[in-house]
Structure formats: structure tokens, C-alpha cells
Amino acid sequence: MDAITIRNLTKKYGDGTVALQNISFSIKKGEFFALLGPNGAGKTTTINILTGLANKTSGDVLLFDQDVVRNYQQARSLVGLVPQEFNLDQFDKVYNTLFFNAGYFGIPRSQRHSKIESLLRELGLWEKRYSKVRELSGGMKRKVMIARALIHEPKILILDEPTAGVDVETRKSLWTYFRRLNQKGTTILLTTHYIEEAEELCQRIAIVHKGNIIALDTKNNLLELLERETIKVVLSEPLSVLPPSLKKYGAAVQHNALLLTINPKQNNFSKLLDDLRKTKLSIRKIETERTTLEDVFLHLTKK
């Protein structure tokens, strides 16, 4: 049984915007899965349909075989959501927010305190438990939303840009935290714009573009497909003839520079250096450029 099953899901908003066009995919139990895509791709729409914040237009969505519409109460109890936009009661205290949300998910009063304490301590917010939400920094509010999503120990954790507006150090510690949750068995669905975040955390990645899934594969396969390094070799003098030994690197000549591409996963960097040395070209400097997410999108959407 898959943790999340999405079949032929289409979403058309009231104003006619088609946000999702017949997408299908499933996420296995225990997986750490990323939805990657540019602004407006349909990531939040997908998540909102999973969690009951948006109505689907057609298709089926199941969480551990529970239909999110027909068996909505069972389905909801399996999920914790960290939404993209802040949706906390600004005037309530951190502790109360978690106390009542624990209640909504059926946790008896007597068990709430210890759960709240351990979560807030893990996230470094225990000192702030009696602060009102609006007195917290943006990063702290995000952590309160993470604590809120985890208060009922959901089987599925859904993170919609969980590290937006969070400093580098906090981001790293949240990554560690999410990885540990995943190792303990929580299925995690993450959306992000940061390819590093997806790379760092996820086993499989789906790339969403204009309401379609344009690629879905394991991290390694996708990286093999997408991640290439461009190496710019600047020469002391312009080059007239391209040395044949460099053709296999997709070489292109640009004034007095050579542009070569390699796939770092194939570990052929030293081979390239050998080949370069054998050409006896006089090299002034070498620059490397990693493929960015934009390159990935361009590459995939051109197809």
C-alpha cells in the first residue's frame, strides 16, 4: 500500500486557471519525496488537495488507501501539514496553539503536555512557549508550524517550502531533523525551489511544470540526466582547429575559450584533464560552472 496515491488528478480553479493537468504518481511508505518546480507550477495546489484545503476537479487522491474526499476524517488524521503561507492565530500563545491542535487530532489532554514539551525542545522553541505567535520571528513561526504539523505524530508529513525565510544554520538543522523523522518511518513530501534541498534530502524527485509532471525519477537518475558540469578553458591564444580528442566532451569554441561538458557522476574529470594536457594547448585558466535549476527546466521543457 502506497502512502500517497494520485491518479489522473486535475484541478481547475474557479477563475478558469488549470493548475493541474491530469497528473498521476504515487509515493511509497517511508519515502522522502520532493516536488520541484518553478512558481505557479502547481505544487501547493497538489498539497492543498491532499490535505483538504482545495477541492479537486477530477481524479483520485488516496492516503494509505483512504480517499481524501470520501473518508476525509481518516485521511486527515494521517497527515501533518506545514503550509507555505503562515496560518497561525497571531494572538494566541505558542503553547496554546499546539495544545488545541493536539486536541483537534484527538490527543487526550493528559498526553498533550509531554508531546508539546519534547517537540518545542527539539525545535529550540521551549523558551518561547508563552510568547504570542506574533511576537516571534519569521523563522520561529515556521518552526511553530512544523511543531503543529508533528504534534499528532503523523504517518505522512507534508512540507510546503519549509525552509523559506529561514537562515542557513536553521535550514541545516531542520534538514537533519527531517532526515531523522524520515529514518524513523515518517513518509515525507516536500516542495521546494532549492534543488540542493531536494538533492540533500530526497530519494525521488518529481519535477512539476505548468501543472504537469515532466520528470519523475530517483535522485541519482535525475542527476545523471540533468547534472552536468560545464568547464570553460581559457586559452592564451585563439584556437582555429578543435582537437579531435575533445569532441566527446561536446566541445564548443568561444573566442579563445573552449566550453566542455562532463557528467560528474561518471567521474571523468581527470580523464578530461589528461586529454587537455595531451593537446599541448596553452591554458590560462579553467572555470567550472554547475548546472542550475533553471538549466534543468530549460533542458526538460525544450523536449
Partner: peptide
């Protein structure tokens, strides 16, 4: 106010009928 602050979503994502 819950709608305005978005906090009404807490009720919608919870297993409340």
C-alpha cells in the same frame, strides 16, 4: 478572524467533521 488569519485551515486539515 480565523478565515482572515488563515487559522481556519487548522480545522480543515484536522480530522474534524
Amino acid at each position: 478572524i480565523s478565515k482572515f488569519q488563515g487559522q481556519v485551515q487548522e480545522y480543515l486539515v484536522a480530522p474534524l467533521s
